[in-house]
Amino acid sequence: MSISFKKSYKFAVKSAFYITLFATGFVAILLYFFLEINYLFLAVFTFAIFLFSFFVLQFRVEKFIYKRVKKIYDDVSLLDSTTLRNQPITTDMATLTLDVQKFAREKKIEIEMLKVREEYRREFLGNVSHELKTPLFTVQGYLSTLLDGAMNDKSIRKKYLERAEKGVERLINIVKDLDMISKLETGDQNLNFTKFNIVDVVQNVFDLLEMKADEKSIMLMFDMKYTKPIYVHADQEKIEQVLTNLIMNSVKYGKEKGTTEVSIENLTNNKVIVRVTDNGEGIESHNVPRLFERFFRVDKSGSRSEGGSGLGLSIVKHIIEAHHEKIYVESKYGFGSEFSFTLEKAK
């Protein structure tokens, strides 16, 4: 790639000035002591020595110094530095130094970001392999037992096949969730925006999870009686999934005989905020920033016993961000948590 020069003459001008000053002074002293001072001669000599010094210095700088500097720019440009590619090289050393320092800072930041991404990638791959390995080994174990002779017992055969089916369902859910996150991140998951009543959607989720909540005697309720519909503009199916994931989590990690409360409030003239609040075990403050990471679990052992793909909150975050909305979390360990997100009001 060819890199152009933006010439600067500061170095040559200053250097020529100093050489001229010295040469003129030296010649003037010689004339004073040995000959008669001729001011016309001194003026011509000064002008000539300045021009000669300037052109020689500028030529030498461009030919030998900046030729090598240009080679350095060409080399580092292979590292895809947009700053160095889009701007011409200057022969001003101060500007050159600033350019190189800026390039070094950018590369340092880029290297740090790559290290963070590599660490995230390594952790993510480890989590994926662990999540897939558990149901795979479960299915393999039941099938191997059946093939080893347990298939002849009808009751055992049915029980083991049902358990193997659950393992396969968990694998399918993990793959589906990963596929959804991938599509949301790349923008391939198209959202179907419609006008709908968010109160009805919350009630549908309550009805869906009622039996699950009854197992722990957890009450699903609104903060008040909503007599009028609250219409929002969003993808109804995706928002229902968001509410299902959030309410399911509050039930899963809630206390026996606890509550999960949903409130819908006006935030601005064109926004509402939906809050899902519980009085469960809460989340320790150092875990809150990582809640929306894929496969991140606050309780590594207990949460796996509850099942799930470990991708629920990550999907929630991606769906809300795909709507260009915000999601928030507040939690006090031992007292409960509140997840909230904004939605656009329907006109």
Rank of each mutant, 00 (worst) to 15 (best):
F17Y: 06
A48Y: 08
Y39R: 02
A23V: 06
L57F: 11
F47W: 07
T20E: 08
F33N: 09
S53A: 11
L31A: 12
F17D: 03
F55C: 07
N38R: 04
A23I: 03
L30P: 04
E36V: 12
F54A: 05
L35P: 06
I37A: 02
L40V: 06
L35Q: 15
Q58T: 09
F50Q: 04
F45N: 06
F34C: 07
Q58Y: 12
S53R: 00
V27M: 09
F55Q: 03
E36A: 14
I19H: 05
F52N: 12
A28Y: 05
F50W: 12
N38G: 02
F22N: 05
F22W: 04
F33C: 13
V27F: 03
L35K: 15
F41Y: 08
F54R: 03
T24D: 01
E36S: 12
F55I: 12
F26K: 03
S53E: 02
L30I: 15
L51C: 12
I37P: 07
F22S: 01
F41E: 00
T24W: 05
F22G: 05
F33P: 04
F59I: 09
T24H: 01
F47D: 09
T20G: 10
F34P: 03
Y32A: 08
Q58C: 09
F54V: 07
Q58V: 11
G25M: 00
A43Y: 08
Y18M: 13
L21C: 08
S53Q: 01
F34E: 03
F33G: 10
A28G: 12
A28R: 00
L35F: 15
I37R: 00
Y18K: 01
I19S: 03
L35H: 15
E36W: 08
F41R: 05
L57V: 15
F59C: 08
F55R: 04
F22K: 02
F50V: 11
Y18G: 07
E36C: 07
F17R: 02
F47G: 14
F50P: 06
L40E: 11
A23Q: 03
L30H: 06
F52A: 15
S53L: 01
F54E: 00
F55G: 10
F45S: 06
V27W: 02
L21A: 11
L31Y: 08
I29Y: 15
T46G: 14
L30E: 09
L40S: 08
A48T: 12
F34N: 13
V56I: 15
T46C: 14
F34L: 14
A28E: 02
V44G: 09
F59S: 14
Y39G: 08
N38F: 02
V27G: 02
L57H: 08
F34R: 12
F55K: 01
L21D: 05
F45D: 04
I37V: 15
S53M: 02
A43L: 15
L40K: 03
Y39W: 13
Y18R: 05
F34I: 14
L51P: 01
F52H: 09
Y18L: 15
V44F: 13
T20M: 10
Y39H: 09
F34D: 07
F55W: 06
I37H: 04
T24C: 05
